[in-house]
Design a protein around this nucleic acid. Structure first.
Lengths: 228, 228
DNA sequence: AAGTGCAGTAATGTATACAATTCGGCCTGC
DNA sequence: GCAGGCCGAATTGTATACATTACTGCACTT
């Protein structure tokens, strides 16, 4: 477990640590996140753990079931589609803005991100590669100088990682860095329209790589299903 | 205060209650939300109040200052612009989808919303009118059957209410229901393109009615300003 | 008189103890 | 043999007590 007892953990840092673990698929969907267990792992009390779990539940990365506990979320097929529809609304035009505001240091950060992503993939660390891939998308929103939209994209990217964990079809991997390279070129040329279009197809490719056939998942619990 | 001791308050219901109070301008920006004070008002312990305040801080309706407490957020001019830029990305195309999926019961709900909004305004209850105006926008996302985007819009609408509290220019009021009526007509005709366009201009009008001249707000605290 | 240092106070941050609820196993009865 | 109900264990939900931090006022120094 991550919980080295050296650090002074706060609810925020614990939440960030857990989010990264989820994002990197070290904590797969449906994993039970017991408060006592986590508290012991991090060397803190349940109070702080609870705050972290609640924070993650607000980002839909964790599902809180009353009197049952916290579990890594399992996005439904429906939710998976919605997440990518939301990304399709936000990211292309954000990429457009980013291209227009692009600077040399920003380009350097994007290149560095791709390099690290590539390295992680070479090292066979798929989880880390996936996380870094998300960082690339986040960095674009940061460059576009839209912190509000950045926060939304951050949530959506993390949730996408859960979706990939559940619905990823082909393990063929190179497609990601390829698309990011293409985006980088558009950014280098400050070509907003191209960046917007590339981001749009990149997201469509992502959805296409998923197996989102509706399998009519049984209600997880009758209680839930009968609520209304 | 709202805290009637009849109800069994949970952190979620307290958060919802506070959010509504903020949305209706009963709790203006910068209001101190003391844990003890709220706990006493609702007849619950600080633990539950804290959870509610944390939830609201995740929606950027409340600012948590470490060891200082919780305050109703005061969006900056910058943040105000960002909120409406995000809405401009999300809402027009959501309105488009809504128009295409429109049903008679959904239309009835929209009409009812407008009626109530109008009634509240006639009654001089500006806060409630503002809240209902937000409900209209939310209902559209609900009709579009996009719960993920709906959650984002819900947050943005509530934050918009804070922005209006801070930067509203003219008290002239009728503009809101007017725009909503126009949208309703587009919905009645299932005209997605028109709805999208009307929503776009409606949001632009809203921004235009604000006074977002940059006044270079002084750093709220030197500590914050010098953090990096 | 202005600014600095110090201590008191009041609030939040954290941990722990108790209460409530859920689920699992077992047992009984038909 | 199976369905239904009861009881127990485990885990979360809530409240309270303690620790920590930041601000406020006052006295003191220069």
């Amino acid at each position: 477990m991550t919980g080295l007892d050296l650090k002074q953990w706060t609810s925020d840092s614990v939440a960030a640590d857990l989010e990264r673990a989820i994002h990197e698929h070290r904590l797969p969907p449906a994993t039970k996140l017991g408060e006592d267990e986590l508290g012991e792992a991090y060397g803190i009390s349940r109070t702080t753990v609870r705050a972290a779990l609640h924070a993650l539940s607000h980002r839909r990365l964790v599902e809180l079931k009353r009197n049952r506990g916290a579990f890594v979320a399992q996005p439904s097929v429906r939710e998976a589609r919605e997440v990518f529809e939301a990304r399709a609304l936000l990211e292309p035009r954000t990429a457009h803005s980013a291209a227009e505001r692009m600077t040399e240091p920003a380009l350097a950060r994007l290149r560095e991100s791709i390099v690290q992503e590539h390295a992680a993939m070479q090292a066979g660390d798929d989880g880390r590669a996936l996380f870094l891939s998300g960082q690339f998308h986040l960095e674009i929103a940061r460059i576009a100088d839209q912190t509000t939209i950045e926060a939304f994209i951050s949530e959506l990217v993390s949730r996408s990682s859960l979706i990939i964990a559940l619905y990823w079809r082909r393990r063929a991997a190179l497609c990601e860095t390829q698309a990011h390279h293409a985006l980088l070129e558009a950014f280098e040329q400050r070509d907003g329209a191209a960046a917007e279009q590339l981001m749009k197809s990149h997201l469509l490719d992502l959805v296409a790589s998923l197996d989102l056939r509706n399998v009519a998942e049984p209600a997880t619990s009758l209680r839930e299903a009968l609520k209304k």
